[in-house]
Every structure is written in structure tokens, then in C-alpha cells.
Amino acid sequence: MLFTGLEHTALASPEPKRLAQWYVDTLGFRINHEYDGNFFVKAPDGAMLEIIPSQGNAPETAMRTPGIRHIAVSVSDFDAGQEDLKGKGVKFLGEPLNLKGNRLLFFADADGNILHLISRPQPLP
């Protein structure tokens, strides 16, 4: 197979170091590489985000405007994850949802990017 997966997704931030540290402090990621103001943060499962310096003003976005709309964060215990985020003062963007057994909770990172906590009873095929 020629194309084997997604190596990372990039987020542009006015303060990349601060946002990278938010992912470390809030979600338990680690900064595994940095260069020229760019930071790679890595989740315990190996997923990575690159946080790069932004330029200009961010456009207004909502849950369904075109483009990438959220990053889903898997969790081993949904209720404990929700309580942990609540204790860290994370901004929730609604109430938890239960969709066909999948539990979801939308929240924002330090720059306002949309993430959601997800717990699935079974992985997708």
C-alpha cells in the first residue's frame, strides 16, 4: 500500500508554545519535537499534532462551516475524562451526547479549536 495513514495534523496558533503546553497539561500529550517555533505534540497512542505559528486573523467558524471542524480525542473512561477536563477548567461546548452507543463531549482547546472526547463501545470497521 502506497499511502499508509495520517502522520500528523497541523494547527496554526498565535502562540504555538502555549498551545502545545495546553495539550501537555490538559490531555497528557508530550512535546516530542520542536523547531523554529513549531511544536509537535504526541498523544499516548502515537497520534500527533503539529502546532505552527499563525499569520493573520482567524476566520469565524462554527461546527459545520467548511474545513476541519474538530479533533476527536479517545478516552479509556468517558466519565473520568469528563471530570478531569472539568477540573482543569476546560470550556465545554454543550452537554455530553450518546449517539448509537458512542459517547461524545465537545470542548475547546486554549485557542478555541474544537475537540471532542469520544468513547466507542466498539471500534469502527
Rank of each mutant, 00 (worst) to 15 (best):
Ala62Thr: 13
Pro14Arg: 04
Glu34Trp: 04
Ser54Asp: 07
Phe106Trp: 06
Ile71Phe: 13
Leu99Ile: 13
Ile71Met: 14
Lys91Tyr: 08
Phe107Val: 05
Met63Arg: 15
Leu19Ala: 13
Ile114Trp: 12
Asn32Met: 09
Ile71Asp: 06
Ala62Asp: 12
Thr61Asp: 08
Lys86Cys: 13
Asp36Leu: 15
Phe106His: 04
Phe78Asp: 03
Ala43Pro: 07
Lys88Gln: 09
Gly37Val: 10
Val24Ala: 09
Thr65Asn: 08
Gly101Cys: 05
Ser74Pro: 15
Asp77Pro: 03
Ala47Pro: 01
Glu95His: 02
Pro14Glu: 07
Ser54Lys: 12
Ser54His: 09
Lys42Gly: 03
His70Leu: 09
Leu99Phe: 12
Leu115His: 02
Glu15Tyr: 07
Gly89Ser: 05
Leu124Gly: 02
Ser76Pro: 11
Asp45Tyr: 02
Lys17Ala: 11
Met1Leu: 13
Pro16Gln: 10
Ile51His: 01
Leu27Arg: 10
Leu85Arg: 03
Ile31Arg: 07
Thr9Met: 13
Pro14Gly: 04
Asp79Asn: 15
Leu99Cys: 05
Ser13Phe: 07
Lys100Ile: 10
Thr9Val: 15
Ser76Cys: 09
Ser54Met: 07
Thr65Arg: 03
Pro16Phe: 11
Leu11His: 10
Trp22Ile: 01
Thr61Arg: 15
Asp111Pro: 02
Lys100Tyr: 08
Asp45Ala: 05
Asp45Thr: 13
Ala20Tyr: 08
Phe78Leu: 06
Leu104Arg: 01
Pro53Phe: 09
Leu11Asp: 12
Pro66Glu: 09
Pro44Phe: 04
Pro125Cys: 10
Leu124Asn: 12
Thr4Met: 07
His8Gly: 05
Tyr23Asp: 03
Trp22Lys: 09
His33Tyr: 15
Pro14Val: 12
Pro121Lys: 04
Gly5Phe: 00
Leu105Gly: 00
Asn113Leu: 03
Glu7Tyr: 14
Val75Ile: 15
Asn102Asp: 05
Ala43Met: 03
Lys17Asp: 04
Gln122Ser: 14
Asn32Ile: 03
His33Leu: 06
Met48Gln: 02
Thr9Glu: 14
Ser119Pro: 01
Ile71Tyr: 14
Gly87Arg: 11
Ala62His: 11
Gly37His: 10
Leu93Cys: 11
Ala12His: 09
Ile52Tyr: 07
Asp79Glu: 15
Asp36Met: 15
Thr26Ser: 03
Asp79Tyr: 12
Lys88His: 07
Ala62Arg: 07
Pro123Asn: 02
Gly67Gln: 12
Ala12Cys: 02
Met1Gly: 14
Gly67Ile: 03
Val90Asn: 09
Arg18Val: 13
Gly81Val: 11
Gly46Thr: 01
Gly87Val: 06
Asn102Gln: 04
Asn38Thr: 00
Gly5Tyr: 00
Gly28Arg: 00
Ile71Asn: 04
Glu60Gly: 07
Leu6Ser: 11
Phe107Gly: 01
Pro59Trp: 14
Arg69Asp: 04
Ala58Cys: 04
His33Met: 09
Asp84Pro: 08
Asp77Thr: 10
Asp45Val: 03
Thr4Trp: 05
His116Gln: 01
Thr65Phe: 08
